[in-house]
Amino acid sequence: MAHAAVPGITQEQKLEQWIRQYGTAILRTCFVYLSDAAQAEDAMQDTFLKAWNSMEKFDDRGDGAAKKWLMRIAINTCRDYRRSRWFRYVDRSKTLDDLPAPMEAMSAQERSLLIDIMHLPEKYKRVLLLYYYQEMTLQETADVLGISRSTVHSRLQKAQLLLKRILTGREIR
């Protein structure tokens, strides 16, 4: 749902509205990206703190601008986390047993899809998360990642191809 600016509310109220509206989706995106619940929580909190620090400069034109902006901050925050030295020394390969328990019974295939996505190379995971999970358009995904629409399109194709290879047991790179 697009976030529309509501006249008459304070910056604090607006931020709180954003946390309630987008926080859970950002938290889950961060988890898929970082493969670590505690890190994901930190990244989600950092995202909103960074947003708060730059809110005065942000031009909320409505039409999903806030969501795009917050997602850009979240993705950059996750990238920062992954760049950190200590992050690279921790084994983050996950199995089904490492995932939080699902709310409802999910098929093994559905559960393995999440693992498959988490194991995708980072650049493909980013476009997949924004385009499919956040349900952004090609253009919105391109705007968030600062890449061209054609690059988003080709990465989505590659991501799908990699997931297919995972499914069919073929070697992936």
Binding site: F31, P102, M103, E104, E110, L113, L114, L128, E135
Partner: peptide, 17 residues
Amino acid sequence: HNPVKHTIDGQLFSLQV
């Protein structure tokens, strides 16, 4: 039906703000 969204939201239901 979007299985990516369904899977992430279903599997990560416990991760909520």
